[in-house]
Structure formats: C-alpha cells, structure tokens
Design a protein around this nucleic acid. Structure first.
Lengths: 327, 327
DNA sequence: GACAGGGTCGGAAGCGGTTCCAATGCTGCA
DNA sequence: TGCAGCATTGGAACCGCTTCCGACCCTGTC
C-alpha cells in the first residue's frame, strides 16, 4: 500500500485495524484507496510484527478414526467463524507425535493447539507453557490444561446395563491397548464402567473375555474371532468404539454367527458408519466436543467471552445388533 | 540465537539452511550451540524474509462429504512427508467460497492450494495467477490448471450397464443440481454416461426419472420418495454418490420397498459407509486422487521431481443392493 | 616478496507490518 | 494574546530471518 492516499504508514495501519485516533475523513479516504487498489496487508508481516500467528493448530491421530473427523467438524464450526486460520497436524507414528510437539506446536506457527485423543506427558505440557503455546485437550485430560471429555465410565455402564437387561450374562470387551502413545484412556475407562456394572450384578469378567489391541477394524476383527473360538464364547460383545464394533461384526459374519441372534454387539461413538450398519451403540457428542474444545481455546486466548456450554450426556442408541438372550 | 557461538547472524542462517560457504569446523560449532540452546528459528520471520510461506492450503466443501475426507487423507499422506504445513479452509456457504479465494488463497498465507470439488471461474483462476498462488484442482478441471479427475462418464456407464445386465429397464437418476456454486460437474457427467448406455440399449430416460437437488442424504431421501410415488416407479436407481444412495435406501426403507427385491440401488464413490451399508457402488480412487493432487502441487512448486502416477480406473463393487429384475 | 584469487565470514539492508513517540494544528480559556 | 491540552498524524524502530556485499585471511604463483 504505497502511501498513495497521502498518509503515513502508521495511519494506514490504524485504519486497517480499526484503531482509534484517526479522523473520520482520513479513515474514509484511506479505505477508498485500499479497495481501489485491492490492497491486502501481508499476513506474514503481520504475524512477525505482532508476535502472534492468528493460527490455531489441531494435533490429532487424524484420519484413521471417523470420530476424529466428526470432532474436526465441530472445531471448524467455531474456528471458521473466528479470525483464526486452521492448521492441521496428523499423527500416526511416534516420530510424527514428537514432531507435532517440537516443530508444529510452536509460537512462531500457532497461537494455540487443540490436542485430540492424545495423552500428553507432563514434560510436554511444560514445554508448551514455556513456549507460550496455549493448549486444550479434547478426549483426554491433563491436570493443568483445560479439557473437554465425556463420561466414558458412564458410557461403559450404559452399554453393559443394556446388555444385561437383554439377558446376557457372558459379555466380552474389545478395546484399545492400554497406555499406547496415542491412546485413549477412554477405552480403559469404558471397560471400567463395564466392570462396575458386571460386578454389581454379581457377574464375572474373566480375563479371556477382555481383548485389547491396536485400534482399527481389522485388529478388532481378529480379536473377536478369538472370542468366538472360545470353548464358551460370549453371547454379547461391547466394543470400545464403533470402528471396532464393525470389526466384531466382520468376525461374526465370517464365522456365520448371527447378529443379533447368536451374538449381540454394542459399540461406542455413534459415527455415521454405525447408523449405516444398524449398530446399537453409545452415542457421545463428538461434534459438540470439537466445538467445545475450540471455544475453550478461543477463550483461553482471550478472544471470546463465550461460555462453553456443557456437553450433552452420553446415551444409548438402540438399533439392530443387540438381541435378547435367555439362558 | 544470540551469537553465543561467536559468529555472525549470516553464518548461523547458512548453517541452519545447509547453505554452502561455511567451514566444517564453524558449522559444527554452530550446530552444537543450536541444540544446546534448543534454538528453533522463527517460521514467521522466515516466511516474511523468504516471501514464501511453506504452507499449502486445501479449499474444499469439507466436512459435509465423506468423499472429501478420504481425499484429504491422501493429501495428508503426501504433504505430511514434505516440508510444508497444511492449512484447511472449509467452504459451505457462498460467503465462505468467496473468502476462500480472496482472503485465504493469498501468497502471504499459502504458497499453493488444492481445490477440491469446487468449479473455478476464469476470473478466479486469473486472480490466483496474478497473486502468484499456485493451484491444482482435484475432482474438477480448469483449462489452465493442473487437475486430477476420474472418468465420471465411464463410471456412469459402468453403473448403468450393471443395472441393465440385471434386467432393469426403467432406471432413475438421483444427483446434484447442475451448476451450483459448489458443484460437481461430476454428477452431470455420471448422468451423461448413464444416458449413453441407456440410449445405446434403445431405452428411454424420461425427465420424471431424473432428479437433481442439493447434495446430502436427506435431499436424496426426499427425491427418491417422489420417484417411488410415481405411477410407474423405477425398478432401479443410480445415485451420483454413496451419500445420496444412502438417502435412497432411507426412502425405500420408509416406504417398505424391499432392496434389492423391489428396488435396486447403486451408488458412486465407495466410501466406508457404502461398505457398512452393503451398498453396490462404483469405486473411484478417492485417497489416491488426494495423493495425486498433492504431488501435482508439489511438483508445480518445484519441490518434487516425482512423477504423478496415473490413477486406478473406476470400477464396480458389487454388494447387496442390486438384484435381478425380470420384467 | 608482492599480488591474484578462492574460501570464510560479519553484518547491513530488506521483507511488510505495528507501535510508540514526537510534531503539528486547533480549540478553549485565562 | 498566550498557552495548555487534545486530536491527529508521520515515521523511526523493531519483529527475526535471508541474502548480498565487502572484508579478511591464506595459499599459490611469478
């Protein structure tokens, strides 16, 4: 913006930023020249000068999980309406995980990050704080970080009670491996809710009925196949996610086990896939959690006074994969 | 990086960028100090100085279409391994569409953009060129832009032939509205393939069997309901996307029309949902198209000599929604 | 021994904004 | 009429990096 408007650089800057202290006439003249020239200030220069990037990052085990996509939608709902740009960092390997924190989540790139489904170590959180990168966690928690989570334990209870009410007594669990670097404490907590309900009902949960492995449809398929091959196979399986429930369904189909006739299956999340597959599941507010996380980050950054509304509670969505069992 | 290493700023820069002209001893000394101090150069300053952002943008009607998510996966596969950051811009309204081009796709934010499923006007392409923002198009085409597309017409033929071979003679089409600002020439081209095959077979395609409306499951549901309410309803429906096919399935379920007994349905894309719903569909290489688009952009930017491999051709995936019709 | 020329290196300028401070012009009041 | 004080404005300094140019040191050559 050559000072073709006949004013100083300072004045142009003030006009563009709606800063006070510019006479109305001047302001209008500058504006006229600005859109006559189609002038757009350089975001790059602005970032350097301001020391803020006006960019927010999302770090997530991204495309491998439909639940994450749904959360991203929620995040975009909010960020899209703000003045921030949205940057993505996908994590699928330990190297990427490290890179996300050391190279991507830095103040010269982003003002803040939303971390999805990734447990953060204390040292990592400290590093973030030291660098001045604000962070919030979605589907996870850290003592010193704002976070949004759902009641996974309750979700586990809901699912299990539903199975029990349908008459099942021998139910198995298929979930994520504990303590993996990309984990999912959530899987473990869902199992916990399950255990609670089971033991309240005076039922056993033998180790052979607890399967944990890598996330994904195929691994779940394999685990379910083992369950079905047991001398006394379970009559119902609770999967810690819909994707895994689909894997269980695959195994049942392969073995010719009727669902819900011979085997009942219940999932968790209620992603689109679950609806299409007619899967009974525990619904968690995925998109809303993304929105809440984004709002949280904006408010931490001081950009929004907005209150972050409470998330809807988890609840059961009954479809066609749970049937009565009278044993 | 205070010049604690006892060298000038120029030297530090040269070391960090592996530029020549630095004595090996000096280079090593600087490197030592760098990681002793945990020093990281500021991306913001670098961008300003370089005049490049080392950031790539994706502009897409993002979260509303699972096919787009799949393409994004492919894009991330490639960009994640490059030196570029990935920025996202979601388009769902005409305002967002305009903003994407005037505010987001600018040289101070991104070096290049991948435009997905959005038809670009000549003026828009010119503006991009003038600003020096490189662009490639995925699922779309523009005379003067590199692009990756599949053979939609052939896909339409494939689907229709399959239906014809199953004995159907009265088949309908459910697709996207023509010429919408977020369109999808692809829908139209798929219809074209359908028409070709139909007329080669000496069959009619009356206007009442061609339904076009907004993209999405619900609108497709509504359109299919109208088709089913016809005096002589179609015995098969070709939907221009899986999402729309799902909507057709919804309508059938609502009306108690058996699929594939009384109605056959075939979709397009083969997204996860299709598999879960047992939908017969035409598979297009979504993820690969994302990868190809990203490679194309990198090569346009001169960052990659990589050849962009040809995409696999579209082909039929037969599942459970197409049945024989003997009329 | 003087000098040309290559290898290294230091640091000023420049990228394009924001912001702070000083300068200017007016207004109102004593 | 003189001056304090506010509104407005211009522009230097600065953000942290890259790059270009000039300086310096050494070597080899005649």
């Amino acid at each position: 913006m050559a000072e073709r408007a006949g004013v100083g650089v300072g004045t142009v800057s003030r006009v563009l930023n709606d800063s006070p202290g510019v006479a109305r006439a001047t302001r209008e003249r500058v504006r006229a020249v600005v859109d006559e020239l189609g002038y757009r200030p350089s975001a790059a220069a602005r970032r350097l000068s301001l020391g803020r990037t006006m960019t927010l990052g999302v770090v997530a085990p991204f495309f491998t999980r439909p639940s994450v996509v749904e959360r991203l939608r929620g995040i975009d709902d909010v960020i899209g309406d703000s003045h921030y740009d949205l940057m993505l960092f996908n994590v699928e390997t330990p190297e990427q995980r490290a890179a996300a924190l050391t190279r991507f989540a830095r103040p010269d790139r982003v003002d803040g990050v939303i971390v999805i489904s990734l447990p953060l170590a204390d040292a990592e959180v400290r590093a973030l704080g030291r660098d001045g990168v604000r962070a919030v966690v979605v589907d996870g928690a850290h003592r010193s970080l704002p976070h949004v989570t759902i009641d996974d334990v309750e979700g586990g209870r809901l699912a299990t009670r539903h199975l029990l009410e349908a008459g099942h007594r021998r139910v198995a669990f298929v979930g994520d491996r504990e303590g993996n670097p990309f984990g999912f404490g959530s899987s473990q907590r869902r199992l916990q809710g399950m255990s609670e309900v089971l033991s309240e009902a005076g039922l056993e949960l033998p180790g052979e009925l607890i399967c944990r492995g890598p996330h994904g449809r195929a691994p779940a398929h394999a685990m379910a196949a083992e369950l079905l091959a047991l001398a006394t196979p379970p009559t119902a399986i609770f999967a810690a996610s819909d994707v895994q429930a689909l894997g269980v369904l695959d195994a049942a189909a392969e073995d010719g086990v009727a669902v819900p006739g011979a085997l009942s299956v219940i999932g968790f999340d209620d992603v689109d896939l679950a609806g299409a597959a007619g899967l009974t599941t525990v619904r968690q507010p995925l998109r809303e959690s993304g929105r809440a996380g984004a709002r949280l980050l904006l408010s931490v950054l001081g950009d929004e006074l907005a209150t972050v509304a409470a998330l809807p509670a988890v609840h059961l969505v009954c479809r066609r994969t749970v049937g009565r069992h009278d044993g």
